[in-house]
Simulated scan of single mutants.
Amino acid sequence: MTKKIRSDLFFLKQYGFNDSLLQTIFQLSLDPIKSIFNNENELIMEIESMFTEKDRELARDYQKYKSFKFELFNTETFFKDSSSKIYFKYDQNDLTAVIPEKIMPLFMYSKGDVAQLSLDKKRVAIVGTRKPSEKSIELTKKITQEYVHNNYIIVSGLAEGIDTVSHETTLSLGGKTIAVLPTNFNEIYPKTNQDLANFISEEGLLLTAIGPKENTYKSSFLDRNKYVANISNLVIIIETNLKSGTMNTIRNAFESNKKILFVDQGDEAINNKIFEFGGEMLNDK
């Protein structure tokens, strides 16, 4: 029964129902389909209050939902890929072991070698600006090589710049890398990294909180940074600005009690900000 409930919650989420509603249904041990489409929510205040206007509109037509589910199940390539996996927030697995419940979304999705998430693996996030200097690119290659040779899995966010260099360097050395995406697997961002994403799915692991029918929002990029920080044992900062996605990753690493190492930014204000988050400066010579 629990497996069926998880399946129902997954398809309902892809259809557009909100996480808070679906989580409440699960926590109250209710039947998701009956609770949403049979008006049983009117009898349960905890459920009724969770419905948004969008949820109410979606709940008006059960047959339309059934058609959506049938089409998604039969056309989505994710289900036909043996290397794909869905992680549920309330299961015990390698992912829920490293991402706290308060951060973990209802579902996360992976493609590739899930052994890279094992607790006995060492993972280091190497992150930085999308527009790095030549010096930063060379430092990224050097630092990535050092950690790959020390059997670390390299974690990054598949963004342009430092992320791309760290992923590509790892693969060129025969190492393992995890790319945490802000999009689903059908809409790789940036598009120029589609081939890189394909290679990582074959040689490493792709990970995302965005399901096949879900949209990416600005908040998706910030959430991606949380997951990068939480699945890593330590975080290394190559180059960043005071207000940036990388600084957001640093903040998340600090809040997750992760070790933070960083290259001298050549800017006292930026260095001091990273020091405030417990960062330790690396010798980049």
Rank of each mutant, 00 (worst) to 15 (best):
K4A: 12
S7Y: 03
L9P: 07
Y15G: 06
G16I: 06
F17V: 06
N18M: 07
S20H: 10
T24K: 11
F26Q: 05
N39R: 14
N39G: 02
E42S: 13
T52E: 08
E53M: 11
K54P: 05
D55G: 11
R56T: 11
R56I: 13
R56F: 12
A59M: 10
Y62M: 09
Y62I: 14
F68L: 07
F68C: 04
F70E: 13
T75A: 03
K80Y: 08
S82E: 15
Y87P: 07
D91F: 06
D91Q: 08
Q92L: 12
L95Y: 05
I99G: 03
P100M: 13
K102R: 13
M104T: 09
P105N: 07
M108K: 03
S110H: 08
K111Q: 13
V114L: 09
S118K: 14
S118P: 00
K121S: 08
K122G: 00
K122Y: 12
R123S: 04
A125Q: 05
R130F: 01
R130E: 02
S133T: 13
S136A: 14
K141T: 11
I143C: 02
T144Y: 01
Q145I: 00
Y147R: 06
H149K: 15
N151E: 13
Y152F: 15
Y152Q: 02
I154H: 03
V155E: 01
L158N: 05
G161E: 06
T164C: 08
S166Y: 05
T170V: 06
T170M: 07
L173G: 04
L173Y: 09
L173K: 12
T177L: 03
T177F: 04
A179S: 12
P182G: 15
I188V: 14
T192R: 14
N193A: 06
Q194R: 12
D195W: 02
L196W: 01
F199T: 15
F199S: 14
I200E: 01
I200F: 01
S201M: 04
E202S: 12
L206Q: 00
L207T: 04
N215F: 11
Y217Q: 09
K218N: 13
K218G: 10
S220W: 04
K226S: 11
K226R: 15
Y227P: 02
Y227L: 10
V228I: 15
V228Q: 05
S232T: 08
S232I: 06
N233P: 06
V235K: 02
L242V: 03
K243M: 06
G245D: 09
G245K: 00
N248E: 09
F254H: 14
E255S: 11
L261R: 05
L261S: 03
G266L: 07
A269M: 11
N271L: 09
I274N: 02
F275K: 12
G278Y: 04
G278I: 10
M281K: 11
M281C: 10
